[in-house]
């Protein structure tokens, strides 16, 4: 929460340094709160931050692990790829974005991967493709033991669809709307394998083959109008667009 009038939003930790006492969080400026966060300067503070919450990603030596990151999810996939590598896995990473300008941390992700494939939707950098295309090719050419896919819901849904015929367990990180983030409100409920789960405490990682993607998408759209209103209202107040 930025201040006492702010909202509680879930963000993923991309990195931390216990000695320095720092956390690295990467977020995309889409709504009022994330844009407001983007306006903060070095040394500014926010009212409230809590975490880590939820269940940590399960890491063990599986064999070959493919890590797929869509858009800004390169940030949350980084520590997972690194941990998978440290656990002795062969790590193949795929990072994709709409266009070249939205790509970041390419070298960082390469440094923790045995192989890295970069895609853009418009072909402005790397391979012109959706992330699912190289994912499918890898599954066709070698034995993969686990896939981790993080990104927009639609990207995670299609990654799960891509891996399903190959029977490779695919873990996705769900991002429904949350309020408290401690299992108190149930706003973030998702259906996995026919059962209702709270993404904040039971997740965010779930088996992508068992997620009810349509329900997730519907619940994510719930506040689009209010999100727009909040953003417009804020832009009026602060005299226009910052970035």
């Amino acid at each position: 929460m930025i201040d006492e009038k702010g909202e509680r939003i879930p963000l993923t930790i991309a990195d931390c340094d216990a000695q320095e006492g720092t956390l690295t969080i990467v977020f995309m400026e889409v709504g009022k709160t994330t844009r407001e966060l983007g306006c903060l300067k070095d040394g500014d503070s926010i009212m409230s931050l809590t975490g880590p919450l939820g269940v940590p990603t399960h890491v063990e030596k599986f064999g070959t692990v493919v890590c797929v990151a869509g858009g800004f999810a390169v940030a949350p996939i980084m520590p997972i790829a690194r941990a998978m590598k440290q656990a002795g896995n062969k790590v193949i990473s795929i990072m994709g974005a709409r266009t070249k300008d939205l790509l970041f941390w390419e070298e960082e992700l390469r440094s923790v991967s045995d192989k890295l494939i970069v895609t853009t939707d418009d072909g402005s950098y790397g391979r012109k493709a959706l992330v699912t295309e190289p994912l499918k090719e890898i599954l066709e050419t070698e034995k993969v033991d686990r896939v981790i896919a993080i990104g927009p819901s639609v990207m995670m849904k299609f990654c799960s669809r891509t891996t399903q015929p190959f029977g490779v367990k695919t873990i996705v990180s769900l991002n429904p709307i949350m309020v408290d983030g401690t299992g108190m409100c149930g706003c973030c409920r998702v259906v996995v394998g026919g059962q209702t789960k709270f993404a904040c405490v039971d997740g965010p990682d779930f088996d992508g083959h068992q997620v009810d993607w349509d329900l997730l998408a519907a619940r994510q759209r719930n506040y689009l109008e209010e999100e727009k209103e909040a953003l417009e209202n804020w832009q009026c107040q602060c005299g226009g667009h910052h970035h």
Partner: peptide
Amino acid sequence: LMKAYLFPKFDTPLR
């Protein structure tokens, strides 16, 4: 807690 009845003065809405 989040004062949704004062949205958009407060950031959390209630639909």
